[in-house]
Simulated assay, not measured.
Amino acid sequence: MTTTIKNIYCVGRNYRAHAAELGNDVPDQPMIFTKPTHALAQMDGESLTLPSDQGDIHYEAELVLHIAKPYVPGIGVDEIVDQYALGIDFTLRDVQNVIKKKGHPWLPAKGFLGSAPLTAFRPFPGAASLAESNFQLRQNDQVVQDGNIANMIFDLQTIIDYIAKHYGLGPGDIIFTGTPEGVGPVRHGDRLELLWGEQSYGAVTINK
């Protein structure tokens, strides 16, 4: 990664249709979890090795923000964000289902090696501009997720303000902003490609 990354924040259940497809309640405030930086991987067309012995792994395509400045109250998303990317929040779904029932933290299901692949970062054009186009995840050339940030439950400004207030936010932090509906399992040999509009941003082939 050429972009410096410090903390990885992730937003859960930020699209109503995604919450519904998993049978989850819609949250009344952002649900935040983290991943270790060891989870990062590049979506550079090469293969990505994922666990093969812990049940289903689901893809979750997301817009990812890169924070450029220290947070101060009142700062706008277009001021504090300098770059954006697309990423996949891989989830060990069988593991997550067990730990959710037990009320345990999500780290075992969300923080494994390779669970946060990212495309290259690009200059941030502004939140309003990003809402003009959809982003997609294609699995073996078939569209499986097609989302727009305009459909988020909590918009980018709300997410940034919430994370900063409760956990802190500063240069080098990134935020996975939530996934639209259409999540599903990956298999050995699957090619996953992320696109913004019709432009390919990055891809990986799964090895598991």
Rank of each mutant, 00 (worst) to 15 (best):
T158Y: 13
P180E: 00
A20Y: 03
K165H: 08
P51G: 10
G103V: 12
G197A: 02
F121S: 13
Q83Y: 04
V98M: 05
Y71T: 12
P180Y: 00
A203V: 04
M152V: 04
G114M: 07
G168I: 04
Y71V: 00
P185H: 10
F154W: 07
L192H: 05
G189R: 09
G168M: 03
D94G: 12
A39E: 12
C10P: 11
G202S: 06
I160R: 04
G111F: 09
G170C: 08
K69D: 15
E198C: 07
R13A: 14
P70S: 07
G147K: 02
I80G: 08
Y71G: 03
D82L: 10
V26D: 12
I99D: 14
K6F: 03
A39R: 11
P73Q: 11
Y162T: 13
R187D: 15
D161I: 06
A61Y: 01
L40D: 11
I8L: 06
Q199H: 03
G103Y: 07
P185L: 00
K100G: 04
T34Q: 14
V72I: 10
I175M: 05
G170M: 06
L194Y: 06
G87D: 09
G170H: 04
T179P: 04
T49K: 07
H104R: 11
Q199M: 14
I175D: 05
A164I: 09
A128G: 09
P117S: 12
H188V: 13
S47I: 00
P105R: 02
Q54F: 13
P51C: 10
K101W: 09
L86S: 14
A120P: 11
R187Q: 12
T4C: 03
H58Q: 03
Q139R: 10
G23A: 10
I57G: 01
A17N: 15
P123T: 10
P36I: 09
L118C: 05
S129H: 15
T205S: 02
D28A: 08
G170R: 15
H66I: 01
S129W: 06
N148V: 00
F124M: 08
E46R: 13
D190Q: 13
D94A: 01
L113M: 12
P117R: 08
K35Y: 10
Q83R: 08
K101M: 11
N140G: 14
